[in-house]
Design a protein around this nucleic acid. Structure first.
Lengths: 117, 117
DNA sequence: ACTTCATTCAACTTTTTGGTTGAATGAAAA
DNA sequence: TTTTCATTCAACCAAAAAGTTGAATGAAGT
């Protein structure tokens, strides 16, 4: 019957990240919230309409959101968006076993940095 | 010029995981190594040739490998394949800050389970 | 009111993806 | 050696993705 099964959050997140340009957008927004125009200066390879489509794909995956500010749309990352996908990947890798000592070190270090406000 | 930029490991991993059926293959192989035929019994929605293509895509991403055993190819997971992608995702999420207490708990528990050989 | 600026929408093209069927390969069983 | 079984290869098709250009929208500046 080929029932065009609903896309899950993980489908959307993984496919949004399956593109270098979109990952670069994430990296840039991690550094600072930006508008489409600001970003488009850094993506000379394609039109701003194409960039807009990439941004919409990230938005549909819940990875970023837009907030209206006058005539601008300011884009910012949603840092919770990766939770489930990260959980899935780490469960099916040997990430924990292989690196939990490193993790432990990292955590102890973070703890001694004090609470993150 | 539109130079068809090389695909990176992360491109391959994320796009391999951007499909429910391929993630299901990962879950099944996590439980136990299997052959194409064994898996195909669990995927009645499409042909074994289609399943074979999915498996090849996972293989190209380094997520599984095949080992010849007589007339069979036994598929097994490569549990290191997610390392870099996991690292990337966790860096750009607030994963650490948000869940490091949980992580800490998990690690302490794992430690008390004793060394993993 | 008119113009400009930032973004979106719409229509269209090309490439990639996910599926199909049928034939080929190659090891194992008869 | 002939047949069977597991997998792969090849050719094809439909749908989705990723890009283009040009027009539309809507707030801001003049």
């Amino acid at each position: 019957m080929k029932t065009k099964s609903e896309l899950t959050e993980e489908d959307l997140v993984f496919s949004a990240l399956a593109d270098k340009n979109r990952r670069k957008i994430v990296e840039l927004l991690h550094a600072k919230d930006s508008t489409l125009m600001e970003l488009s200066e850094l993506f000379s390879d394609f039109s701003f309409q194409a960039l807009s489509k990439h941004i919409n794909k990230l938005e549909r995956a819940g990875i970023l959101h837009k907030r209206k500010e006058g005539k601008y749309r300011v884009l910012s990352l949603n840092r919770h968006a990766f939770r489930e996908s990260l959980r899935w990947m780490s469960f099916y890798s040997n990430f924990w076993n292989e690196s939990f000592d490193q993790l432990d070190a990292l955590i102890q270090q973070k703890k001694s940095d004090g609470p993150a406000i």
